[in-house]
Amino acid sequence: MENLLDINFLIDSFPAIISRLPVTIGIAVGSLILSLFIGVATALIKIYRVPVLRVISAIYVSFIRGTPLLVQIYLVFYGIPKIIYYMQIEYGWLQSADVNSIPPEVYALLAFSVNLGAYLSETIRSAIESVDRGQFEASKSIGMTPAQMMLKVIFPQALATAIPNLGNMFISTIKDTSLVFIIGVIDIMGEAKILGSRGLAFFEVYIAVSIVYWILCIAVERLLVKVEKRARRYERGIA
């Protein structure tokens, strides 16, 4: 009798796939953190209408939104080493960098940060602008510096407002990291591919890996609900 699935192979593939979770989570979380900096910077540039930078950041956001993630990953993976190499030869800069020793995870992290940063930009801008003007004025009136105002008063509230959107984008990013195997990163998807070709059981390993993604995303969603509740506790009518 022909089996639809080799159940044993499927089950046996889990430990190896799960062992690569740190790679997937590392790239997703790492790029979330980096992209928050990019997102905040570009949002502030737009809010404060900083000359020149404003145009650059608008072009950046538009470019990222208008090109496929896959292409962006390739651009980073092939472009950065070339640029570094060019600088070394032409200007003698970055001599200590050994292009060949940069692990593909670094390119993946960069590509995802740059990508997510552009998407966060607009969300963060509108979250900052959703904090009422009055609190900006009150901070100024008591003599806080703009940096103190942003860090202590505005960002915490903006972040609380933005969490649902940030969360959705973060979950998309987790799923998008399944593309990184194309530049040689062995994440959970990469591992699944290796196992699949070794045992010629692709259907099984992709079922396994999809279950891992699914559970991961459910866990992150749960976590986000808790984080949001905590971040917005000041909005509710109880102490």
Binding site: Q135, A138, K140, S141, K152, V153, Q157, E235
Partner: peptide, 17 residues
Amino acid sequence: RNSTGMVFQQYNLFKNF
């Protein structure tokens, strides 16, 4: 700003504090 204190019509308290 250090020598003045202001009270606003809309209170303008820091809501996260």
